[in-house]
């Protein structure tokens, strides 16, 4: 199968390969896929709490060339967007940009899923933190009430 120039470019010069510290509060991590299916994608975002803007993104992918290209492109696209804007990215946009053939559409779906999973993870971290903080202040209040 011949690859499109854009797939080859992302494969040969992947953007934003690497990892962010998944323990950081402002980092969201999405891992999707499964080794036995031949594809696992990890996509991470770092979000500015004030603006909700994605200031950094990294990926690591185990999968075919199209999966690597899709995740590389996804990190490029989410950078600079707010998390709500990033949620608008559709796998069909990736298919179009990379000219993926039909058998490779699921690789782009995986990239979309990875973006969502990363945002989800970030959001749940914020909620946990909120409830933690709430719990803390409640504890505090209780203690003070004693």
């Amino acid at each position: 199968m011949a690859y499109s120039d854009k797939v080859l470019d992302h494969y040969n010069n992947p953007r934003n390969v690497g990892s962010l510290d998944k323990k950081e509060e402002d980092v969201g991590t999405g891992i999707v896929g499964a080794p036995e299916c031949g594809d696992v994608m990890k996509l991470q975002i770092k979000v500015d709490k004030e603006t909700g803007q994605i200031v950094d993104a990294k990926f690591k992918t185990y999968g075919c060339g199209s999966a690597i290209a899709s995740s590389s492109l996804a990190t490029e696209w989410v950078k600079g967007k707010t998390i709500n804007e990033a949620l608008e990215i559709k796998n069909s946009d990736i298919v179009e940009e990379l000219s993926l053939p039909p058998v490779k559409i699921h690789c782009s779906v995986l990239a979309e899923d990875a973006i969502r999973a990363a945002i989800e993870d970030y959001k749940s971290k914020q909620e946990n933190k909120d409830t933690e903080e709430k719990a803390k202040t409640e504890d505090h209040a209780q203690e003070q009430g004693k």
């Binding site: 390969v17 891992i31 896929g33 080794p35 690591k60 992918t61 690597i68």
Partner: peptide, 24 residues
């Protein structure tokens, strides 16, 4: 392998079989 999330997990000492994967 530098690009592989699986290799990274293994380097961190994670047993891949213990991970719950979400197959798409």
């Amino acid at each position: 392998r530098e690009m592989s999330p699986l290799y990274e997990l293994v380097q961190e000492g994670v047993d891949l079989k213990s991970v719950k994967w979400e197959a798409h």
